[in-house]
């Protein structure tokens, strides 16, 4: 039975290194989530305004970010803007910028979809009951919106985590890169290590995303 890389995983510091790589990817997605969610909520609320200029500008931003593959956006920032504006971006910074832009677009779309899904009579009824604008949002809209939004945004977190695997392509050292290094280092000792190591990466990503997906499903059932 040839070695399929399981022993390579437990050799030396290989497993902790792999986990460190996973953390590098997770950290970037977490930073992006923390920045982009409040921004997305703000933008989403702005998009429900009737102002045509705000609407058009948001629309263009949103459509462009959402139609472009995230990989193209990463390339645009990492290779394009550095060349065009002459500044210096590390892979990490470029990926945080891209994920913030993308996360904000996705989040704002969720928020907008949620806000416009309330039937007009809710607004009218609360007005008829004598609630002010602030009270309308405080007591009627926000409590409902939060319940609808939380499962969706938890899902967005898993999408962000999955998409961070792309940062390998702009040279950030994350879990896949570490896996490549481990495989290369053990090329002669166990030439078949790629199987076990990539399987481990696959499994680790699953372990990172699955509980979050389960949470989203649970919340959706509870509040849906």
């Amino acid at each position: 039975m040839p070695d399929l890389g399981i022993s390579v995983l437990f050799k030396g510091k290989n497993l902790p290194r792999l986990l460190g790589g996973l953390w590098a990817a997770l950290r970037i997605s977490l930073i992006s989530v923390v920045i982009s969610f409040p921004l997305g909520i703000l933008l989403g609320a702005l998009m429900t305004l009737k102002n045509p200029f705000v609407k058009a500008a948001m629309r263009i931003y949103l459509e462009f970010i959402r139609i472009m593959p995230q990989m193209v956006l990463l390339f645009l920032f990492y290779f394009g803007t550095t060349r065009a504006f002459g500044w210096d971006l590390t892979g990490e910074t470029a990926s945080v910028i891209v994920f913030v832009l993308w996360g904000t677009a996705e989040m704002s779309d969720l928020v907008r979809g949620c806000l416009i899904s309330f039937p007009a009579h809710q607004y009218e009824t609360s007005e008829a009951l004598g609630l002010g604008k602030a009270q309308l949002y405080r007591y009627i809209i926000i409590p409902q919106a939060v319940r609808r939004l939380i499962p969706l945004s938890v899902n967005l977190v898993t999408r962000m985590i999955k998409t961070t695997s792309l940062i390998l392509m702009i040279g950030v050292v994350e879990i896949l890169k570490v896996a490549q290094q481990i495989i290369e280092a053990n090329r002669t000792a166990s030439p078949n290590a790629a199987f076990g190591v990539y399987l481990a990466v696959f499994f680790l990503y699953f372990i990172a995303c699955w509980p979050i997906s389960m949470l989203a499903q649970y919340l959706e059932r509870k509040w849906g």
């Binding site: 790629a194 990539y198 699953f206 995303c209």
Partner: peptide
Amino acid sequence: IEVSRNTPLLVQLFFLYYGLPKI
């Protein structure tokens, strides 16, 4: 469905393309 939804395509491809030939 759980496995495929909770792993990135890039990792799936790496496993398919670089991992499978080893077995």
